[in-house]
């Protein structure tokens, strides 16, 4: 396999992780636990297919996906900020809710329990060259840019400073006149939209929605965030690393070199190792999971 093709494949796998990890970093830096990435992604994937199916345009699909992510991000924000619900429970509830909703409406819209019909996407893999196909997909560029952009927002803009302040010490931020709930609402809503774009990419890349198609990718993104010690750039590198491992595994399939299940475990094992601090301990934002009073 040529190196370019390998690279293209890595990027193709990494894009959903990059979007979701960018969204997750934003919410977690603001102090809101981000277990709903999986649900945001799945909602984005489904809404994108709905939009693309009824309009014939992938751009409308993208828009619908972002709106879906925004909606569920707001549900997350209202429940965990306005009502001070346990953020972990809210995340899990949203994941379950989105699975149910996408299944229900898959039935209602396409009368199927497994997948949607084929819809228009950005790239046509029929061109034969996945490298060129990736280059023509705007979501690939958006995904690659999301990490540097997020780094810039987090460390070079007032909004980013507020997010970090709110996530490290909400009381101090409050004293300085920052409206803590408002910043958190913004961060969680943006996080929903970003993660949903990962789902949009996934669905439009495959030109259809299949039941449960995110298949744990939101949790791999979460693993990348923790492995990257809540830093956007490091989390992005972790996403690429996990995607490279997956690409290798796909290449090795059939050679029986390493059972695929062991490659699947890599992100999760690395995350636990990072949390336990074998190399350098991964420390979350100080106010993560705490609601401001």
């Amino acid at each position: 396999m040529r190196f370019v093709d390998f690279l293209a494949q890595v990027i193709r796998i990494a894009i959903p992780y990059l979007f979701a990890a960018a969204g997750g970093v934003m919410a977690e830096k603001a102090g809101v636990v981000s277990l709903a990435l999986e649900g945001f992604m799945l909602s984005g994937a489904f809404a994108a297919v709905l939009g693309s199916f009824y309009s014939g345009s992938p751009w409308i699909g993208l828009l619908c996906g972002i709106v879906a992510g925004l909606l569920f991000g707001l549900v997350h924000a209202v429940a965990s900020i306005r009502y001070r619900a346990d953020q972990i429970v809210v995340g899990i509830a949203i994941n379950l809710l989105v699975i149910g909703i996408t299944r229900f409406f898959l039935r209602l819209a396409f009368d199927s329990s497994s997948n949607s019909p084929r819809v228009a996407g950005f790239s046509e893999p029929a061109q034969g060259n996945i490298f060129l196909a990736s280059l023509s997909n705007p979501l690939v560029w958006a995904g690659l840019l999301s990490v540097p952009l997020l780094t810039w927002v987090m460390y070079r803009t007032p909004f980013g400073l507020r997010i970090r302040a709110v996530g490290e010490h909400p009381e101090a931020a409050e004293t300085l006149g920052i409206r803590v709930p408002r910043v958190r609402y913004g961060a969680v809503a943006l996080s929903g939209m970003l993660a949903a774009m990962g789902g949009v990419y996934l669905a439009l890349d495959q030109h259809q929605f299949t039941d449960g198609m995110t298949a744990g990718r939101g949790f791999i993104a979460l693993a990348a965030i923790i492995f990257g010690r809540w830093d956007p750039a490091r989390a992005g590198i972790a996403c690429l690393l996990f995607a490279a491992a997956e690409t290798l595994q796909i290449q090795l399939q059939g050679t029986q070199a390493i059972p695929s299940q062991f490659v699947q475990m890599i992100p999760y094992v690395l995350t636990i190792v990072a949390l336990a601090g074998v190399v350098k301990r991964s420390v979350p934002p100080a106010a993560l999971g705490r609601s401001a009073d």
Partner: peptide, 16 residues
């Protein structure tokens, strides 16, 4: 699948 939606809603509503 309707009941899956309801399950998710119940959890969210109780948590809030």
């Amino acid at each position: 699948q309707m009941v899956e939606v309801l399950q998710g809603l119940v959890i969210l509503a109780v948590a809030a």
